[in-house]
């Protein structure tokens, strides 16, 4: 039977993590799947997970009155979905919808928060890795704001 240890150990997000920390993380992990069109989470709901996407595609959306849902980003294989589990008040700030059949590993944020409080080395390792993701997403968002392909006449 396939276990989650080797999959998580090989994932770029967790690569290089020591075995003790990896075991703690695997203890909070489970396999999940979402059908195309299925909502993964909604803005305002409690954020108690993050996801390592193994396959498929997820749209991050903001709902705006009169414009409906607007997709602001899409995530795919290998991407990490969700960091609101790490930042109080632990609520999702966007909607997430699977736009095609998506398989992922869900990590229990409540469980991980508790382990991070007990083991600050684990907390620091996770925070470093999430900071890198937040940095990449922020940079990409700033480029999106530039309207690179507009005429600017």
């Amino acid at each position: 039977m396939e276990t989650l240890d080797p999959i998580l150990a090989e994932h770029p997000f967790l690569r290089g993590l020591d075995q003790r920390h990896l075991r703690l993380i695997v203890g909070c992990a489970s396999n999940v799947r979402f059908d195309a069109g299925q909502t993964i989470f909604k803005e305002g709901e409690e954020a108690n997970q993050f996801y390592v996407i193994r396959s498929g595609k997820v749209a991050l959306q903001i709902y705006a009155a009169e414009r409906g849902s607007i997709t602001v980003d899409t995530l795919g294989e290998g991407d990490i979905l969700g960091w609101s589990w790490l930042i109080p008040p632990y609520n999702w700030h966007f909607d997430a919808e699977a736009t095609e059949l998506t398989r992922a590993i869900a990590l229990d944020g409540k469980c991980l928060r508790k382990k991070c409080e007990e083991d600050h080395d684990l907390g620091y390792e996770l925070l470093k890795r999430f900071s890198n993701i937040i940095h990449q997403r922020l940079e990409a968002t700033r480029l999106q704001l530039l309207d690179l392909y507009g005429t600017h006449a």
């Binding site: 749209a59 899409t74 919808e97 736009t99 990409a140 480029l143 999106q144």
Partner: peptide
């Protein structure tokens, strides 16, 4: 918009 089912982002 959500009618676009492919990638969004730079």
């Amino acid at each position: 918009t959500t009618a676009w089912r492919s990638n969004v982002g730079v």
